[in-house]
Design a binder for these strands. Structure first.
Lengths: 132, 132
DNA sequence: TATGCACCTTGTAGCAACTACAAGGTCAAG
DNA sequence: CTTGACCTTGTAGTTGCTACAAGGTGCATA
């Protein structure tokens, strides 16, 4: 399997796959006689894992941890649980930040009844006069 | 007013202020005899505006637009409205993405009853494609 | 056989929005 | 006179890719 095929199969750009290899997130592929990367089913599984974790918002560092954990079948799940819980908490924090933002942006839009910038409540609420 | 004071007054790092100046987001400050930046009330107002907009999630490019708009008192508010609405839409999109993520992470946590990685549903589910 | 085209290789640089040094200058207090 | 907090410039690092550039390979077609 060449890099383009793997890319298509996983919805990842070839450049990203090479990047993962450079970063040690994915193991290096075998090479053909002409030096093309040659991937196996294991690589496909590994890349799928990585992409899935990234989609779920895990950082590269967390993905590394998850990968390391996934290679030790006998270890307890606790560490995986902890990572997922951490990520969940992070996501919840972001959601509540964004909901506050949504509130505020909505309030700004409703507040401005003017039609000239000079009286615009939005511009006003951003901080009043500037020198530029 | 020196850069450190302005930094404290606005909750911005001095380095960030210098960065804004380099980027043309803030006008250059006057200089003292010893070449220190010397800020006025106008600079304070401008920086407050910028920080507020950034906190609301506007990109640097959008902040530039907002600043430009804010300097033309006679222009209609429409363009400002459009930017705020754009930003609101963006925030809403992010919220719904994150809520989907929260769902999925929650599902992962609930799904895993195992205590060994070997049977861990979380690790398992990372290796599978999902239809979010 | 030649040629075109899609694919592959490496290496380097760019994106956003800062942040973190390093190496040195300035200034007030003790 | 020294200490320490502050300031200056310039450069490089952060995250997770993405976009070239310059060249090699593989295969179908003229």
């Amino acid at each position: 399997m060449r890099i383009g095929e793997l890319a298509k199969a996983t919805g990842t750009k070839a450049e990203t796959i090479r990047y993962y290899e450079r970063e040690g997130i994915l193991p290096a592929a075998d090479r053909t006689d002409s030096n093309y990367r040659d991937y196996s089913g294991n690589h496909l599984a590994a890349l799928t894992f990585v992409r899935r974790a990234r989609q779920l918002g895990f950082s590269m560092a967390q993905v590394r941890e998850l990968l390391a954990l996934s290679h030790h079948d006998d270890n307890p799940c606790e560490d995986v649980d902890r990572l997922v819980q951490q990520q969940l908490a992070e996501v919840e924090r972001k959601i509540s930040d964004l909901m506050a933002l949504r509130e505020e942006l909505g309030r700004m839009l409703r507040s401005c009844q003017a039609d000239k910038i000079g009286e615009c409540q939005i511009i006003g609420s951003l901080g009043r006069q500037s020198v530029m």
